[in-house]
Simulated scan of single mutants.
Amino acid sequence: MDAQQPSFDAAKYKNAQREQWNKDGAAWRRWNPVLDRWYGEATREMLDLARIRSGQRILDIAAGAGEPAVSAAERVGPDGYVLATDISEGIVELARQVARERGFEQVETRAMDGEKLDLPDASFDAVLCRLGLMYMPAPVTALREWRRALRPGGRVAVVVFSTPERNDWGAVPVSIIRRRAQLPPPVPGQPGPFSLGGQGVLEGVFRQAGFADPEVRAVPAPLRMASAAEYVQLAREAFGAFNAMMAHLPPDERESVWDEVERSMRSFESQGGFEVPGECLVASAAK
C-alpha cells in the first residue's frame, strides 16, 4: 500500500457519528412511518430469524429511534425485556419516548458503543442490529462482543444493505455528491452503507467472529414515495452521511448538488409515484 495513503481514523469517525445522530435523530423519527415501510420486510425477516419468543431478553444494537426495539417488545411480551442501545445519547432518548408512547415498559434504553458493550457475559437470548453493523469500524469486533453477551444457543440477527448496484436510492446520490464535492475514494477499512454487501463479506465477518453456520438472505427493499422531491426532502433531513460528505461546500453549492440529485432521481418517477430499487441482506447465526 502507498505509504502516503490516509488511514481511517475510527475514533474520529465514531465521534462524528455520535454528533450526527444527536443532531439528526429527531428528523429520523419524523420520517419513521416511511422508514418502517421501507425496511418493514427486512425487519420482520430479522426478527423471525432471531427466533424471538415470549419472555426472552433481547439486545438491540444501533437501535435508532425505536425500531426494531418496539417490534421485539411486542414479541417478548410484558414478561420479556428489551435493551435498546445506540452510540447517540439523543437518539436513544427518542427510542425511550417511542417505547413509552406504545406502552412498552419492558423496553430500557442506554447509550452504548456497539463494539464495546458494557454488559455481562451470556445475558441475552438474542441480539438485533438493523442497518448498524456496516457503519461500525470493526464489525468483527462488534460481532464478537454480541456473541459474548449471548447465552449458549442464543442468536444474532442483523440487516445491512447489499451492493450499490442494487441500491440506487443511495448509490445515485452518493456518486453525484462524491463527484461534486471532489471526494477521494473510501480508504481501506472505511465503513459505509455498502461495506458489508459484497458476495460472501457478511458471512465472512460472522465466521471470523466465531459463528459456525451463518445464514444470509437477500430481501428486496424498494423505497416508495410520492416523488423525487419528497425523496430529496427525506435525504436532506434524515441521511446525515449525505450532508456530511458535502459539509465543506458553500451553501449555494450544496443547494446545487441537491438540485442535481433531484433531477437524477426523477428517472424513478412514474404515474404511480416514485419507486427506487433497494436490497438488504438479513443474516443470522447461533452461539
Rank of each mutant, 00 (worst) to 15 (best):
A63V: 08
W31L: 05
I52N: 00
D60T: 05
L249T: 07
R166P: 00
F211H: 06
R29S: 12
S256D: 14
A95I: 01
M246D: 03
P222K: 04
E253N: 02
G90T: 01
D60P: 06
A63H: 12
Q271P: 07
M136H: 09
R29N: 13
E108R: 12
S267I: 14
P139V: 02
K116M: 14
E215Y: 05
A126G: 07
G272S: 15
E255D: 15
F8I: 07
F194G: 03
R100M: 09
S175W: 00
S54K: 15
L131N: 08
E275H: 07
E269T: 04
F104S: 05
V160P: 03
L131H: 11
M1F: 13
R266S: 10
S54A: 14
W169R: 06
Q4T: 15
F8W: 11
I87M: 13
V107G: 13
E41F: 01
V70Y: 10
N22K: 09
D36H: 15
P193D: 09
G200A: 12
A235M: 10
M46R: 05
R147D: 05
E45C: 11
G66L: 07
Q5C: 09
P120N: 06
G66M: 08
A72T: 14
L150E: 04
L223R: 07
G132H: 03
Q182I: 00
A69K: 12
E145V: 03
V261E: 06
E269C: 01
A62M: 02
Q233P: 00
R148H: 02
T163L: 03
F211K: 05
V216T: 04
G153M: 09
V282M: 02
K23T: 14
R75P: 03
L234R: 04
T109C: 13
V158C: 03
E89H: 08
Q106P: 09
G40R: 01
R144Y: 04
F124I: 13
A11F: 06
R217L: 15
W21G: 11
V160G: 04
L202P: 01
R207T: 10
S71F: 13
E260G: 05
R263D: 12
N15K: 13
N22A: 08
A95Q: 04
Q97L: 12
G66H: 04
L131E: 01
I58Y: 03
I52Y: 00
R37G: 04
S256L: 08
P250Y: 07
R130D: 06
F8C: 10
S267C: 13
G77I: 06
E19G: 15
Q106H: 10
V160F: 02
A244N: 14
G278W: 00
E215K: 09
Y135C: 06
A3Q: 13
F211W: 08
I176Y: 04
G210R: 14
R100W: 02
